[in-house]
């Protein structure tokens, strides 16, 4: 008998590897997520986010490594694992020929819930998501945003301990993305559920307790959004020039590495006295066509991480 760990881990994965033929989709990933955390797995398309979620959800097998969800091994205790998780895929998991209520009934019965419990929870969740009026509408007739909302309701009808959301807002317009966002926040407030989210809209990850960046199947950086942003420095300085290369070479000793975006060079700046850089515009030997500075954000963290310069 092991003593109960001080912090219960919702996800405890080590050395996860997933290969598809020659493609190494996930490359020795380690991931610990404490219960109750709102965790964001961030990375560009093809970086291995979906493959990671599918392994954690027992739906594909890792080639090596292991993972536990609330203590259940995803390979050996797949059924017990599936009982404790809720899943919302990139592709919707709904029957378009059935109504909203019928879909939830079907999903609930699959989780062995009695019809009465399904009724109660459907009513509660549909109210939370503003769908109660439409409960008898066929899913095929719903808008993309409503369908995604219903997909989330479907994913939590059995009150999972952890909810996996794989790009929950992909393909939606901004108002609908905001709405979905609010649903997830309400849901977390009401249930305290652990949430593992993937997205490549980085601004959506600002409210996460912790985020990790994944690149080519490897975790490259993780921490709280505020920490990661702070680690970049106080400001991001953007300098536009007809000859960015020369400018960057010139400023390298004082400002360090840069990222290039067309004819704009991005520098990190660690101090408060950023306004002194205004002097660069008049400095001989450098051509500056524009100069601005701003607070860094997660997008910057991501760009610096992706370039391997953070």
């Amino acid at each position: 008998m092991n003593p109960a760990p001080a912090i219960q881990l919702a996800v405890n994965a080590s050395g996860l590897v997933k290969r598809y033929g020659d493609v190494l989709a996930v490359d020795g990933l380690d991931l610990d997520i404490p219960a109750g955390q709102f965790f964001g797995l961030l990375g560009p398309n093809g970086s291995g986010k979906t493959s990671t979620i599918h392994m954690l959800a027992t739906l594909i097998r890792p080639n090596s490594g292991s993972a536990k969800i609330f203590g259940n091994d995803v390979v050996r205790d797949a059924v017990a694992t599936r009982a404790s998780i809720g899943l919302v895929f990139q592709e919707s998991a709904l029957d378009r020929t059935l109504s909203i209520a019928e879909n939830l009934r079907f999903a609930g019965l699959l989780y062995d819930l009695p019809a009465k419990v399904i009724e109660e929870r459907s009513a509660e969740l549909l109210a939370l998501f503003g769908l109660e009026e439409k409960r008898n509408r066929p899913v095929g007739s719903l808008s993309g945003g409503m369908r995604r909302a219903l997909d989330i309701v479907r994913g939590v009808i059995h009150h999972p301990k952890i909810l996996f959301l794989d790009e929950p807002t992909i393909g939606l317009d901004l108002p609908n993305r905001r709405k979905i966002w609010r649903f997830i926040e309400n849901l977390r407030e009401q249930t305290g559920m652990t949430v593992l989210l993937t997205t490549h809209y980085l601004e959506e990850a600002d409210s996460c307790d912790r985020v990790a960046f994944i690149k080519n199947g490897k975790l490259v950086q993780s921490g709280s959004p505020a920490e990661l942003i702070a680690s970049l420095g106080r400001y991001i300085v953007e300098i536009e020039s007809p000859d960015v290369e020369a400018l960057a070479q010139r400023l390298m000793p004082s400002l360090g590495n840069h990222l290039r975006d067309g004819n704009v060079a991005h520098f990190r700046y660690a101090h408060d006295d950023v306004s002194r850089l205004a002097g660069l515009q008049t400095e001989p030997g450098i051509q500056v066509s524009a100069l601005r500075w701003r607070q860094p954000n997660l997008n910057d963290v991501f760009l610096w991480v992706a370039e391997g310069k953070a």
């Binding site: 739906l59 599936r82 895929f89 709904l94 699959l110």
Partner: peptide
Amino acid sequence: RMLIMAPF
């Protein structure tokens, strides 16, 4: 998808 993620 609903069927394969269900706990059986």
